[in-house]
C-alpha cells in the first residue's frame, strides 16, 4: 500500500513551506544587503529594486571591519590547527590502546564542556589580564582551542574507532613506532574524518561570541564581536549592517552545508550518528 499521490504532494509542499519559513530571515538579510540605506527602511518593504553593492563597499571599506575579519580567520584557523594537533595523539591513544581509564578520560573531557563559561568568566578575564593577553589574538586562540578540544578529541576518537585495528597492529608488529603510525597510516586513513572535525572546530570558533565579546576590544575582536557592538546606534545603517552580516555568515553557511551529517557526531559526542 503505497502512500497516495495526493498525500505525497501535500507533504512535499509542507516540507518546502517549512524550509522556506526557516530560511526566510537569511534571505531577507541578503536582499537588504543589496539595498541603499533609504530602501532598507522603506515601508512598504521593497521587493523589486535595482541592486547596489554600495552597502558591501561601505561595510568593508572600514579598517575596523577588515581587522576583525582577519582576526576571525586567524583565530578560527589557529585554534583549529592547535586543537587537532593536541587532540590527534590523544584520540589515537584512546581509540587504539584502550585501558581501564579510557572511558573515564573520555567522560571527564566531555564534562569539561558542561562548565558554563560565565561561571569562570572572572578568573579567565583576570588571568588573561595578569598575563597581558587581554584583547590579543593569542589569548582568544587559547580560549577557543581549549573550548573545542573535548569535541575535537571525541570526534576524532569516533572516526578512529571505525578504522580496523589490524592495520595499525600490522605496522606495530613490523616495528613501526607510534609517531610513524600516526603520520603515515592514521593521517591518510582518517582524512575525511579529520576534515569534518576541523570544519566543525572552525565553525564553532568563528561563531563563538561570549569570549570574543568579553575578553577582546578593538584589537583582537572577531566578526561576532564586531557585529554585536555594531548594534549600538539603534536602527541605523541597516543595509550596511546586513552587508557586513552576509559576509560574516557566508563562509560558515557554505562549510556547514558541506558536512552537516558528519557534524552531528561531534555536536552530540557520538550519541547520534
Amino acid at each position: 500500500m503505497k502512500p497516495s499521490i495526493s498525500s505525497r504532494v501535500i507533504f512535499g509542499v509542507l516540507a518546502w513551506i517549512a524550509a522556506l519559513v526557516m530560511f526566510f530571515p537569511i534571505l531577507w538579510m541578503l536582499i537588504t544587503a543589496f539595498k541603499t540605506e533609504g530602501q532598507a527602511i522603506a515601508i512598504p518593504p521593497l521587493l523589486i529594486f535595482p541592486p547596489t553593492f554600495e552597502s558591501f563597499l561601505a561595510a568593508t571599506n572600514n579598517a575596523g571591519y577588515i581587522l576583525f575579519a582577519i582576526n576571525s580567520v586567524v583565530v578560527s584557523i589557529g585554534s583549529t590547527v592547535l586543537a587537532i594537533a593536541i587532540a590527534f595523539p590523544a584520540a589515537y591513544a584512546l581509540a587504539f590502546f584502550p585501558g581501564k581509564r579510557t572511558e573515564f578520560t573520555l567522560m571527564w573531557m566531555l564534562s569539561t564542556k558542561m562548565l558554563p563559561a560565565v561561571g569562570v568568566l572572572m578568573p579567565i578575564y583576570l588571568g588573561l589580564k595578569e598575563a597581558g593577553l587581554l584583547d590579543t589574538r593569542i589569548g582568544l586562540v587559547g580560549i577557543d582551542t581549549l573550548m573545542n578540544l573535548p569535541i575535537v578529541v571525541w570526534m576524532l576518537y569516533s572516526f578512529f574507532k571505525e578504522i580496523p585495528g589490524e592495520i595499525l597492529e600490522a605496522a606495530r608488529v613490523d616495528g613501526i613506532g607510534p609517531r610513524k603510525q600516526m603520520v603515515h597510516l592514521l593521517l591518510p586513513l582518517s582524512g575525511p574524518g579529520i576534515a569534518s572535525t576541523a570544519l566543525l572546530s572552525v565553525i564553532l570558533s568563528w561563531n563563538e561570541a561570549f569570549w570574543s565579546i568579553n575578553v577582546t576590544a578593538s584589537r583582537a575582536g572577531t566578526l561576532a564581536a564586531y557585529i554585536a557592538r555594531f548594534s549600538a546606534p539603534e536602527g541605523l545603517f541597516w543595509a550596511k549592517l546586513s552587508a557586513a552580516s552576509v559576509l560574516a555568515v557566508a563562509p560558515i553557511l557554505v562549510f556547514g552545508s558541506l558536512t552537516q551529517r558528519r557534524l552531528v557526531r561531534g555536536l552530540t559526542f557520538g550519541a547520534v550518528k
Partner: peptide, 8 residues
C-alpha cells in the same frame, strides 16, 4: 542553515 548563523 539558521543553525550556522552566528548569534549576533
Amino acid at each position: 542553515a539558521p543553525f550556522f548563523v552566528m548569534s549576533p
